[in-house]
Nucleic acid binder design. Structure first.
Length: 939
RNA sequence: GCCUUGGUGGCGGAAUUGGUAGACGCGCUGGAUUCAAAAUCCAGUUCCGGUUUCGGAGUGUGGGUUCGAUUCCCACCCAAGGUACCA
């Protein structure tokens, strides 16, 4: 009876599907456990072996938890809105829904081949109207809410209206747009309905605002900063211009502090927390106003060091600062203009490459020091960014490296305000251990006291106030694209109106072209049926728009992160048509216990999802403020590319070992054409559909082989180094693939894929299978196990449980191999050992485990059978003593059974005194007992 | 520059609380089986020297703590990822 993995795997995958083995129930006596993968974007290329790494890890954990008696929720779905499907549609005219559907089919087949224990009855797709109906509903909730800084949470907009009606906006403390005019209750009540709506819009958690964006006419869309390289678009290299657009924004900044605080309550990797912390960028300091001499205007600056205000000797504005043009004197205008021009030309790359060059220009204008009244030069410099703080800094050269360098370069005075500090060579950037000097009422004060005093003075004199500044910006939520969620919004008198819940979803309309319209409207501008009839409450033809009952619908769509910011809650109750998730379901499942995915989502998805979760929590829709208790970042699997070497200027390919000093050009060869000994299938290479030019190429062989070169790179189609999991499953089986992906190395680390290594885990499975056979027939005996056999079993059990709990799946595979080798050597064929062994292997290699379980005479699936219980007494039979060092003194290590009591340990140690006395030649003086298993005996 | 993670054989990687470094796998070498091959099994495999018992070096580099350091401390070098002049 051979290990026929193809049949075994096909049979059990069918069994699991037919019996809905992994369907989770929303009620159970068992404790709950929710394991989730970041759901994939179904791309046209299908899965490569890098994708399933995290899924295999989470599947092992999910299966382990089922064996441990948990009611496990382990769902999967698709983040199916996105740009690639739209780009493909633009090129081919195929509807994105069609290609997305086809891609999902491929994904599903590939995922099924690997034997995941997903509960597919809960599958979700963000592009399904049943799903995005609730994305739209959440948007409406955000629109109908404001952030109350007094209660420090989001509240329904009606509470704000009540406040306005009673007191106007004087007493309201809200997270909102910066410049809102004050109004009284009387004013408010006298406002027209439109005026009221316009005011409220400035307070809502999602709001319309004029935002300057990177507009790319070539792609007809707005680009994120990281979609641009050197001022042109990353894809296509089209030019990009700055353009103001009216767009939806999300007031994530209202949650800045709570997003920071929440990090302390969740078990996420420190690097990921650090990058969120940096992204939010909290800094504590003060706003200070500087009066400009001979002008009405003041310059506001944010500073983290208001205590150093007496060290200010100049100010620097960003070249783009709005006051620059106004205050520059005629004498300096030419130089300033020239500098601004030069700055705008400098690419990001230039600015990055040369941090050391100091540049700037004097405006000729002066500000007045708020305390001394002294005249201070106002400069512009490109080290000050318009986008951070107020776009202006008060320069304290004695206390800031950049200000110091600037002052030295332009010969500006560097007054020293730190007592007993030498600043002739460099500035003093520290806070502690120095007292202020030359600072009037701050003289002699240390940092903390000075900060308090200066903020008190600033506020008393109304020239500034203490402030906490965040780098985090509000998130732009509009996209000029087709393949995304439509907004549930129509416009009446230019003001946005929400569509009521009962008329959702607002389904994506059909369009002829997926490109923006000729006059620059988003793709939805092409739709003929895209207006809202407020009487019929349905979508009607745009021709019917009038100013009383039919209004135009929003043309933008939501960004990719909308659907992924709440999907984990939907899995709890995926088919609910009346609510985004029912109260019962979310009260039962609560939150994700384990979330696995890549670290590239650190400041995107993982920040937005936390924001929405907190918002829905504030409104009482969710019981938890953080959506995932524990998170693990799996590392990337890299490809091992193969190279062939063409002699320069010829069509001759030379084998790697024969290159020598010859000039060659390295060309990627498809890794599928290379065997495990790095030999190229030359005929295959010549006939490869993508290598037409090399059909008649000549190959110079080493012996009779052509040997390729190898290099580790990111797995990608263009590098011909993609390994398809289907091939591996076909050749070695899904269980081999699962074991091997884990065996490659630590889950969180990036590691290269090398197909050659898979034979090791595959032969382990064959050996495991053979353990259960006698004379080619399935047979186990009922004899009692020996001590050694029990030791093997319990050693394996202990290690495997520890490994799974610590997510070091790679070492468990080794442990299994050792166990199988030991049991093979002992010719162990006993049920008492082999039955628990099958259980242990089950999370890792579920198909073979199921088959063994069946052959052991059990019915049903192994998947919820309890794990065997670890008994420490089987591990170490007797104590063993050995000397560990000799250096004047002699020490010994004594290995003891794990379950020994203190008294027993002492007894054993005494018993070993004799042995030690013999080894050392004298009796030990002192005995150090370390709790655990090692005892040091000082001789 | 800053933050984070890491650096161990030909390769991927083990090593608990500081206690026999190199588990396990790949590769390689030799052997068994076979007409032969595949498959399987056995033995060896950190490096350098004697090569049967052995000696020396050795976990990026240089120091330190310790009877004892891959592990702890300090400084440095290198690599990967993140971030971008944050006032």
């Amino acid at each position: 009876m051979e290990y026929n993995f193809r049949k075994i795997e096909a049979d059990w995958q069918k069994y699991w599907a037919d019996n809905e083995t992994f369907k989770a129930s929303n009620q159970s006596e068992k404790p709950k456990y929710y394991v989730l993968d970041m759901f994939p974007y179904p791309s046209g290329a299908g899965l490569h072996v890098g994708h399933p790494l995290g899924y295999i890890a989470s599947d092992i954990y999910a299966r382990y938890k089922r064996h441990k008696g948990f009611n496990v929720l382990h769902p999967q779905g698709y983040d199916s809105f996105g740009l690639p499907a739209e780009q493909y549609a633009i090129q081919t005219g195929q509807h994105p829904a069609t290609t997305t559907e086809a891609n999902i089919k491929t994904y599903r087949r590939q995922l099924d081949n690997i034997g995941f224990s997903f509960d597919w009855s809960r599958e979700i797709r963000t592009s399904n109207a049943d799903y995005y109906k609730w994305t739209q509903w959440i948007f409406i909730q955000l629109f109908n809410a404001w952030y109350n800084l007094d209660s420090d949470k989001s509240e329904d907009i009606s509470t704000l209206i009540t406040l306005f009606e009673a007191d106007g906006n004087a007493t309201v403390k809200a997270a909102c747009d910066d410049e809102i005019d004050a109004f009284t209750a009387t004013d408010w009540n006298a406002f027209s309905e439109d005026k009221k709506q316009a005011v409220l819009l400035q307070y809502r958690l999602t709001f319309l605002s004029e935002t300057e964006v990177n507009w790319c006419p070539g792609l007809g869309t707005v680009l994120a900063n990281d979609e641009m390289v050197n001022g042109v678009s990353e894809r296509g290299g089209h030019t990009v211009v700055r353009k103001k657009m009216k767009q939806w924004s999300m007031r994530i900044s209202a949650y800045a502090q709570r997003l920071l605080d929440g990090l302390n309550t969740i078990d996420w990797p420190q690097p990921l927390k650090d990058s969120q912390t940096n992204w939010i960028g909290r800094s504590q300091g003060a706003m200070v106003s500087f009066q400009i001499e001979k002008f009405e205007e003041k310059i506001d600056v944010f500073t983290t060091r208001p205590d150093t205000i007496y060290g200010v000797s100049f100010m620097t504005l960003a070249p783009e600062h709005e006051l620059v043009q106004k205050i520059v004197t005629d004498e300096h205008r030419a130089t300033v203009e020239e500098y601004i021009k030069a700055t705008s030309k400098r690419s990001e790359l230039d600015r990055m490459a040369d941090v050391k060059t100091i540049s700037g220009a004097f405006t000729g204008a002066y500000a007045l020091h708020p305390f001394t009244g002294e005249k201070i030069q106002i400069w512009i410099g490109d080290y000050v960014l318009a986008s951070y703080g107020t776009g202006a800094v008060m320069a304290v050269p004695c206390g800031d490296q950049r200000d110091y360098a600037f002052a030295k370069h332009f010969n500006i005075a560097i007054p020293n305000i730190f007592a007993d500090t030498d600043i002739s060579e460099t500035c003093f950037e520290g806070k502690e251990g120095v007292k202020l000097a030359n600072s009037d009422f701050l003289n002699g004060l240390p940092y903390k006291k000075a900060m308090k005093t200066i903020i008190y003075e600033l506020e008393k004199r109304s020239i500034g106030y203490g402030k906490i500044n965040y780098r985090l910006r509000d998130a732009v939520f509009s996209r000029q694209r087709y393949w995304g969620e439509p907004f549930p919004v129509y416009y009446k008198n230019g003001l946005p109106q929400m569509i009521a819940k009962e008329f959702l979803p607002i389904a994506l309309p059909e369009v002829e072209k997926y490109l923006p319209t000729e006059d620059g409207k988003p793709p939805l501008g092409n739709a003929e049926v895209w207006a809202w009839d407020t009487e019929k409450n349905e979508i009607v033809n745009t021709d019917l728009v009038n100013d009383t009952t039919v209004f135009p619908l929003e043309l933008n769509t939501m960004p990719g992160w909308a659907g992924s910011s709440w999907y984990f809650n939907r899995y709890m109750d995926a088919s609910n048509t009346g609510d985004f998730v029912s109260k019962e379901a979310v009260d039962y499942w609560q939150d994700i216990d384990l979330y696995i995915g890549g670290s590239e989502h650190a400041t995107g998805h993982l920040l937005y999802a936390r924001f929405w979760q907190k918002f829905l929590f504030d409104l009482g829709h969710l019981p938890k403020e953080e959506f995932a208790k524990k998170l693990i970042n799996q590392g990337m699997i890299l490809g091992t590319s193969a190279f062939v070497y063409r002699l320069e200027g010829t069509n001759k390919f030379v084998s790697k070992g024969l290159i020598g000093d010859q000039k060659v050009q390295a060309i990627h060869a498809d890794v599928a054409l290379v065997n495990t000994s790095d030999e190229l299938d030359v005929e295959g290479f010549k006939n490869h559909p993508l290598n037409r030019d090399y059909k008649d190429a000549e190959f110079i062989l080493e012996g009779d082989k052509y040997v390729v070169g190898r290099e580790v790179e990111k797995m990608s189609k263009s590098k011909y180094n993609v390994v398809n999991p289907d091939q591996i499953c076909e050749e070695y089986g899904a269980d081999s693939l699962r074991l091997f992906e884990m065996f490659l190395g630590p889950l969180e680390q990036a590691k290269p894929w090398k197909t050659s290594g898979i034979s090791g885990v595959h032969s382990f499975l064959k050996k495991l299978w053979k353990l259960y056979l006698v004379d080619e027939k399935f047979s186990v005996n009922e004899e009692a196990p020996t001590k050694d056999e029990l030791k093997t079993l319990h050693k394996t059990l202990k290690k495997v449980e520890e490994d799974i709990e610590n997510f070091s799946f790679n070492t468990s595979v080794s442990t299994f191999m050792i166990a199988v080798n030991e049991l093979t050597a002992a010719k162990c064929n006993k049920r008492a050992i082999l039955e628990p062994l099958a259980l242990l292997v089950s999370p890792y290699a579920p198909h073979i485990a199921e088959e063994l379980w069946k052959n052991l005479g059990h019915t049903g699936s192994i998947s919820t059978v309890d794990f065997p219980v670890f008994e420490p007494k089987h591990l170490i039979e007797s104590s063993k003593v050995y000397p560990i060092s000799f250096n004047g003194k002699m020490r010994f290590t004594l290995e003891l059974p794990l379950d020994m009591s203190k008294e027993e340990i002492e007894k054993t140690v005494m018993a070993h005194e004799k042995t030690i006395a013999q080894l050392a030649g004298r009796t030990p003086k002192k005995i150090i007992i370390v709790p655990g298993k090692i005892v040091n005996l000082v001789g």
